[in-house]
C-alpha cells in the first residue's frame, strides 16, 4: 500500500482550463469524499489520477512511482466509473458475468466470490445484459466492480446515482464493512452529500479548477458556524473571520464562518450560532457567487 500523490495537475480542453494546478495527496487507509458541483472536473481529476486521461501538466505518483503507463502502479488502483447503458456496442451488449470476467483478468486481487455475494445482496441476475439494466442496477454493478476489485486504492465515481434511499444505505454499510475488513483506501465522489458525510474520514472540496479544502470531516465541521441575527450584531461577532455566503433579509443577516486556529466568535446573546451540516457548508463555500 502507498500514497497517491498528484502535483501540479493541469488539464485543458481546447482553451478552457478545467484543472488549474491541482496538488492532492491521498493517504492510504482512509475513506475520502470528493465533492464538487457538476462540471467542476471531479471525473476528469479522478481519471487523470488513474492514468485514464493524460494531463497537460503535472505528475501522478503511487508509492513514489509514476502511474502513467506503469502496470506495477496501475495494479494497485481501480477506477469504477458510471456505466452507460445507451451505448449499443461492446461492453454493453455483454452479460454482467462476462464483464466480471474481464475485471478478473485485469484486477490482480479480483474476488469473484465477493462479487457474486454482492450481486446476490443487490438482487441482480449475473446473466443479464448490461444494455438491459436500469440506472439503479448499473450503479450496483459499478459498486460491485469497485468493491470486488480489492484494489489498494479504489475510486468510485458517483456510485449512488440512480439508487433509492434504501439501496444507498446498503451501499454505505457495504463500504464501511469492506473498509473495516481490509483497510483499503476509498475515494467516493458524490452529489448526495449529507448521507455520505458520516462515512468520509476526510472530505475534499473541488472548486474553480482546484482543491478548495481537504480536511478531516469532523475537524472541518467543528470549526464551521452559522451566525444569524441583527445585521450589526452579526458583523460585530464575526469581525476578522473568514466569511462565506452572506444572506440579508430586512434587518437581519446570516453568514457562515470558518474559524482558523485560535479564532473564536465574540460572545453575544443577541445572535444565534449553529453548527452546519456538511451539505450546508458545501453550499456556503461552493454555491453560487453573489
Amino acid at each position: 500500500m502507498g500514497n497517491l500523490v498528484c502535483k501540479g495537475i493541469v488539464k485543458k480542453y481546447k482553451d478552457k482550463v478545467v484543472l488549474n494546478g491541482v496538488d492532492l495527496t491521498i493517504e492510504e487507509g482512509k475513506i475520502y469524499g470528493l465533492i464538487g458541483r457538476n462540471g467542476v472536473g471531479k471525473t476528469t481529476l479522478l481519471s487523470i489520477m488513474t492514468a485514464q486521461n493524460p494531463a497537460n501538466e503535472g505528475t501522478v505518483q503511487y508509492d513514489g512511482e509514476q502511474v502513467w503507463e506503469n502496470r506495477k502502479a496501475l495494479d494497485h488502483l481501480c477506477f469504477s466509473r458510471e456505466l452507460n447503458a445507451l451505448t449499443t456496442l461492446g461492453p454493453n451488449t455483454q452479460k454482467i458475468k462476462e464483464y466480471f470476467k474481464i475485471a478478473s483478468i485485469y484486477y490482480p486481487n479480483w474476488d469473484q466470490a465477493y462479487a457474486e455475494e454482492l450481486m446476490k445482496q443487490f438482487g441482480i441476475d449475473q446473466k443479464k445484459r448490461i444494455s438491459k439494466l436500469s440506472k439503479g442496477m448499473l450503479s450496483m454493478v459499478t459498486i460491485t466492480i469497485g468493491l470486488a476489485s480489492k484494489a489498494d486504492i479504489t475510486i468510485l465515481d458517483e456510485p449512488v446515482a440512480g439508487l433509492d434511499v434504501v439501496a444507498r444505505e446498503d451501499f454505505y454499510r457495504m463500504l464501511i464493512e469492506e473498509h473495516a475488513n481490509s483497510g483499503r483506501t476509498f475515494i467516493v465522489s458524490t452529489h448526495i452529500i449529507e448521507e455520505a458525510a458520516d462515512v468520509f474520514e476526510e472530505v475534499i472540496f473541488l472548486k474553480d479548477g482546484n482543491v478548495l479544502l481537504k480536511e478531516n470531516t469532523v475537524d472541518l465541521l467543528d470549526r464551521a458556524r452559522h451566525v444569524t441575527g441583527v445585521a450589526e450584531d452579526v458583523d460585530l461577532v464575526t469581525e476578522g473571520l473568514h466569511k462565506y455566503h452572506e444572506e440579508k433579509m430586512g434587518r437581519s443577516k446570516g453568514v457562515t464562518v470558518l474559524l482558523e486556529e485560535g479564532q473564536s466568535l465574540k460572545e453575544n446573546a443577541q445572535v444565534t450560532v449553529q453548527p452546519l451540516s456538511l451539505q450546508n457548508l458545501f453550499v456556503a463555500l461552493c454555491g453560487r457567487e453573489e
Binding site: R173, I176, D198
Partner: peptide
C-alpha cells in the same frame, strides 16, 4: 471502533474519536 462503524455506517476514525 470497527463494530461501531459498521453498526452506524460511520467512519471508524470518527467512532474512535
Amino acid at each position: 471502533t470497527n463494530e461501531l462503524a459498521k453498526l452506524y455506517a460511520i467512519n471508524p476514525a470518527t467512532a474512535a474519536k
